[in-house]
Amino acid sequence: MAYALQQLINGLTLGAMYGLIAIGYTMVYGIIGMINFAHGDIFMVSAFIAVTAFTILAAADVTSIPLALTFVLIVSIFFTSAYGWAVERTAYRPLRGSTRLAPLISAIGVSIFLQNSVQLTQGARVKPIPPVLEGGIVLWDAPGFTVQIGWSQMLIIVTTVILMSAFTWMITQTPFGRQQRACEQDRTMASLLGVNVDRTISYTFMLGAALAAVAGVMVTVYYGVVDFFIGFLAGIKAFTAAVLGGIGSLPGAMLGGLLIGLIESFWAAYLWAEYKDVATFGILCLVLMLRPSGLLGRPEVEKV
């Protein structure tokens, strides 16, 4: 019981991070209908930026943790959004309106490019940083097992909840959100009605990258190590989460993320840890077979 509770906490933490990345996939898919394969690597870049920023702070003897986190988040979000913008501008925009596969291949190219440029400029070795947030609260001192929620886990869950609320507000209430949703439904019509479609798409990519940046900082804080390969698996899991929740749906992405996180921690804890990715993909296949548009996705009525 205590053990299960601990897995629940770990799963939620993991799921929150997947959810943050998944939103980037789902928004981009919603607006231009492509799998932004490079999104996982954008997340990876953000983690590296976070490592550099933390190291600079350590060198400058900044000891206030809130201050440090704020600084790192801002720096990481800024640079990562720039990457999101640049990737869309160079690799995807010229391909808008061509076949569905062209941007996908281009995205795979970007993904390989980013992975290798980070490996080249930052080194192939794993980067460890000293723990930023240590300790936590003991929730339950059960016999033989102590359930604990770490400060970093709390940080991740709380930040995700705040971000999600802010994000939902932005998409549903602000002019940008309206434009974003308009473009999602019908780009041509939106542009005829005066929405700057190109700019809206750019912002969407930047927003997705910004959320990935938050996830990148969180991962750095939580695990304390990053390497140039973390983007691939995180990206695939997050995309799986987006599909599971119903691609194009924001709450779906979050729900999908949480589910994947939970499945993964429970499967690893109780069954075979080495097959946890098989479980993730297996469940994805099952869900898609039974509900092809995902859990919260609008079922696509085939227009004949």
Partner: peptide, 21 residues
């Protein structure tokens, strides 16, 4: 050697942008 895959990724993007079909 270490630029191999970098070039590879770049080439994929450039060829695609140059000839989307």
């Amino acid at each position: 050697a270490e630029y191999r895959m970098l070039l590879f990724g770049l080439a994929m993007v450039l060829i695609m942008v140059w000839r989307p079909g």
